[in-house]
Simulated assay, not measured.
Amino acid sequence: MSPHTTPITEAASDLELTERILAADGSRTPNPRLDPYVADIDLDALRGLYRDMVVLRRIDSEGVALQRQGQLGLWAPCNGQEAAQIGTARALDARDFVFPSYRETGVMLARGAKAGDFVRMWRGEEGAAFDPNELRVGPMQIIIGAQTLHAVGYAMGIQHDGADEVAVTYFGDGATSQGDVNEAMVFASSYGAPVVFVCQNNHWAISEPVGLQSQFPLAGRAPGFGIPSLRVDGNDVLATYAAMRWALEHARSGKGPAYIETVTYRMGPHTTADDPKRYRDEAELESWRRRDPISRVEAHLRAAGAIDDERVAAIHAEADGLAREMRAACLGMVTRAPLAVFDGVYAEPHSGLERQRSEYAAYLSAYEEV
């Protein structure tokens, strides 16, 4: 049986069925399949990936803090998934276009997001989040799996235009059970669309473990649609980087879609509205802490003499500075007047819209009198 058709059991755990380059202790493992795709990633480049992951974790913790302090309506943490996001996103070409879910803060960071871009949507401010054309990233999608359809439609447009780019979409393990994701793979395969599907298997779809959805690796579903797939250790930034390069090479060369499953773990809650202690075993969480994606890169760099305490401290100081910028941007945002929600809905005002505006104004005035 191949790794994609081997049941996940105690004898064949998730990590035993994944491709990797960096082991949990930071040591490098030869991988004939993946090594060619990261042959040019020297220690300096790996230090850059480490820096990105440290910054991402700090941004993520600041987002949680801002939500807890009432500055954001919600936040979707990505603690533990730094390698899965930074590795894949840094491998992209500037011309490629990304269609994310709601958890891809690291993809936004890698694509050049500014401080306010990380919080604008979660604060509910005007302008949604960022300029999709500037970052080459579509708006973060709350509807589970819907972004996969958007990505395939865009990829079919790439074919129509004869452009040399690839559409990339991210989704979680829970989304693989949604019809949208499966329908997207049908269309992508049928039309040979240049799209890469990235499944971040973080083991929990809110409170439901991935084992309830599938006893087999999720990467095994893609070949059923005629899409080649690769299953990698999502806590290994070199493996995720290599996997994305493999997938992009496949899609950009006209061979159609590719699928990556990054096996990682959500260390925090599903969102800040969730309490994972109600459904998750602390021992499981602790076992994944020992596989931390940032620690393993740091261990590798230290063993190679490519980083020391001084440089690590400087990176963390940089991360703190970016977090302060993010907080300042959030607190400095001016929320427009509630009735402004009716502005710009239509080119010309009409009686129906004016009636709604009056009714909403009356509703708001009731609170002013209290």
Rank of each mutant, 00 (worst) to 15 (best):
L322C: 07
I206K: 03
R324T: 09
T335Q: 13
S13K: 02
F187A: 15
S189W: 06
H203N: 00
R95D: 12
A366R: 15
R57M: 09
A167W: 08
V345E: 11
P77H: 00
Y360S: 04
G48P: 12
R120E: 00
Y367E: 08
Q67L: 02
Y170D: 06
T6L: 13
P30A: 15
H160C: 07
H203S: 03
V166G: 03
G116D: 06
S27W: 03
A304T: 02
A366M: 12
E318H: 11
E348N: 10
A283T: 12
K255C: 00
L56K: 05
L135R: 02
R252V: 03
L49Y: 15
D14K: 01
P217I: 07
W288L: 07
A219D: 06
L15F: 11
M267N: 02
V54T: 06
S229V: 02
F97Q: 10
T240H: 08
V341P: 02
P217S: 11
A273E: 03
L109M: 10
L34N: 04
D343P: 00
E261D: 08
L56G: 05
M156E: 11
G174K: 04
M1G: 15
P3N: 09
R47K: 14
G174Y: 02
N202D: 11
I206T: 01
F99Y: 15
V195W: 02
F97H: 12
V312S: 09
A83N: 03
V186K: 10
N31G: 05
R221A: 09
L46Q: 10
G124K: 02
A110L: 13
R28C: 04
R231Q: 14
A167L: 09
G145S: 15
T105D: 01
H350R: 01
R90S: 13
T148W: 00
A167F: 05
T335R: 12
E165R: 15
A188E: 08
Y170S: 12
S101I: 04
R68P: 09
C330V: 14
S351L: 09
Y154C: 06
R58V: 12
D180C: 02
P36S: 10
S13G: 14
S189R: 08
H150C: 03
M121Y: 05
R57L: 07
D52N: 15
